[in-house]
Amino acid sequence: MLRTGRFVTFMALAGLMYLYIPIFIMMVLSFNGSRLVSVWGGFSFKWYGELFSNDQLLNAAWLSIRVAGFSATLAVILGTLAGYVLTRFGPFRGRVLMAGMVAAPLVMPEVITGLSLLLLFVAMEDFIGWPQGRSITTIVISHATFCMAYVAIVVQSRLAQMDGVLEEAAQDLGARPWRAFIDVTLPMLAPALISGWLLAFTLSFDDLVISSFVSGPGSSTLPMVIFSKVRLGVSPDVNALATILIGFVGTCVFIYSWRAGRRMRMCEDA
């Protein structure tokens, strides 16, 4: 175990406070009865009431959930194949290009991705008549494309940890490659696929910039609605929405890390 001094501990805790204080403040403000940030108007649930009577926000949230679900599923299928091909297939022609294409979306500025995909969709509609206009379909394709890069990274690192011995054994015993993949590789990959799906879902659910480029009229996702609201300043029902989302994600992440930590401790004790 690495030893560090008091200075590192102090700096690290200060850094974590920097990460958490704004989130904490936003959560407290969501229960503030006053519309003003600097005035405490008593504890109240009124912004939550306002949030759940705002049809525009609720419709956008439902659209975002559907988009994120489809995109994440598509991204997991494509990303798993990409990650598997890159770690298990050895050299093939164009492998370097593929590795580059899988890594590049991680750093590509969103405005470039959004603009380029929109221009592609416009050109495709011109040439082959599909996709007709911009809709949920174009958002899902765009999100799946940048999310599959994240899934591929998660799958690649998981595959690098497991050696290929079990897959080879299955093939030595006569299983075709795809049988070995389905019966041996996939079950071992399952945790990575679940976290990849959740990551892709979150990234798609949060995306503002790419969606703004490739969505059509009537398909405003939740971040697009939030952005147009908060551009004009603080809006208390957005605080309430943020508290619900962060509370939900926070609970999931902490249950997961607590269980992982407990499993780890049991391994250490054993």
Binding site: L19, Y20, P22, I23, I25, M26, L29, V37, L199, T202, F205, D206, L208, P223, I226, F227, V230, G233, V234, V238, N239, L241, A242, L245, I246, V249, G250, V253, F254
Partner: peptide
Amino acid sequence: LPFWTSMLLRVYAWIGI
């Protein structure tokens, strides 16, 4: 945890501060 929560909302939190 912050990475898993909306970047837009976290940036927005700074407006109130």
